[in-house]
Nucleic acid binder design. Structure first.
Lengths: 252, 252
DNA sequence: GAGTGGTCTAGACCACGGC
DNA sequence: CCGTGGTCTAGACCACTCT
């Protein structure tokens, strides 16, 4: 029974079966759009998976996969014997594998970057260990001051293996580090992050316009490419009034 | 060709096809165990999905799903045309949807809890909004001091709707909040978290044994149950030398 | 060309929740 | 009891990478 609420049929009329975009992705992204825009209201129930498949001309596994994507994002909830519901009242905003630059850009702010230093140095023990290179071998060290709308937000300190020394210093002013790596054919696949806090040093406080000894939000990250090779080790600190890490967690 | 490294056949000999545990889960958890223990070395390649399926007597989708679980956890990397590899050299430790109590317990520490206050109060505006209840309606407020091995680590402040006032104050000393909610039949499914930092107040500094005005790591969380209803709003602060949030991010 | 993962189909049976 | 999602099968075709 149940007055299964439906969406306008037009939402899914023109699925492209020839192009490179997977069907499940076309369905899930349009569904997500419809939910976020309110076209499908929060709390409403979806039809069962088989009916949806029939209406869209898709098999059940394909429909399931589309739905699963949104369950993983925290937009839908499935309960056996009950059905699938749009989660009530919240916007979910996951921590994503992007750099701060892209975070800010998507947030409709104007990011700015000042390159504080750009140099090749012998790897200190800590950095060598994180990047899995020999202590004392050449590594590229980049230190940047990142701001938004003219206000300093974060100090970014990054270390990369020496073959990346051809990253142009000038490019760092207008592009994110990950963007430059992608342009070089390097895709960051996995990152281990550790978030904590500490006091600002005098140097950091001056750069960020904070009081000396004031609290800073810190993030350490080691990023790996497809093959599991360590590409970047970063140690960043943020002004806590201006930045925070937001996550949506979904229990399995 | 490739010298496809294999695992000992014994690893997967006794799959249980009758019990309630899904086959893909049996495979992925044993595979994970084998990787974490080093039985399958980092960097090694797995056989292709079809061969694995034949060896285990499973269909390809089932094998794929098992592997996908570990890809999502950041233990394996798949590349089209190449194969599946164990990621090199790292332990991944995701932020999970558990409470601090369970985090500490799994970390082989002895967690302790002191209930600082336990009271029903009229909901302040901020709390009412987060829990989607009327301003001034009754909410349960719990404030706890969490320590490990006798050292204070965090101050946990939680708000719950009034129907949870039957959570026994005494139970909070020995059990986590989520554990108590589960025992009441409430499953936390989705949580929105926001991590940042700020100065400690005098009160907080005294409780945590920190210097006044020192940095604190903070986490705000709203947790929802299956139906999307807000169950808990929490505002926690941690001593940054003793606690941090670790995540493994995997690009899709 | 050979081998790999990425996607998709059309069924099947089961477990769980509500009636 | 019925309807739901959860799992599983046995195929198929395609895109990509390496040789």
């Amino acid at each position: 029974m149940s007055v299964t609420p439906v969406w306008p049929d037009e939402l899914f009329t023109d699925l492209d079966r020839t192009g490179p975009v997977p069907l499940y992705y076309q369905v899930s992204s349009r569904l997500e759009q419809a939910i976020r825009s309110g076209t499908i209201p929060t709390g409403s129930r979806l039809e069962n998976e088989i009916s949806i498949g029939e209406r869209l001309g898709l098999s059940r596994p394909t429909v399931r996969r589309a739905i699963q994507e949104l369950v993983d994002k925290g937009l839908l909830v499935r309960r056996r014997g009950i059905g699938t519901q749009v989660v009530q009242g919240q916007v979910s905003r996951p921590v994503e594998l992007t750099s701060l630059y892209e975070d800010l850009k998507h947030g409709h702010h104007e990011p700015s970057t000042e390159v504080l230093s750009y140099e090749v140095i012998p790897a200190p023990e800590e950095v060598a260990e994180k990047l899995s290179v020999a202590v004392g071998s050449d590594v590229l060290r980049i230190r940047r001051l990142r701001g938004t709308d003219g206000v300093p937000v974060a100090i970014l300190e990054n270390y990369l293996p020496k073959e990346f020394t051809d990253i142009i210093e000038a490019d760092l002013k207008s592009k994110g580090l990950y963007q430059l790596l992608r342009a070089r054919g390097v895709t960051i696949r996995i990152a281990n992050q550790s978030i904590s806090a500490r006091r600002a040093t005098a140097d950091e406080a001056d750069l960020l316009g904070e009081s000396r000894g004031g609290p800073l939000l810190t993030m350490e990250r080691i990023a790996f490419d497809d093959s599991g090779r360590a590409i970047e080790y970063g140690h960043h600190c943020y002004r806590p009034e201006l930045y925070r890490f937001e996550t949506t967690l979904v229990a399995k």
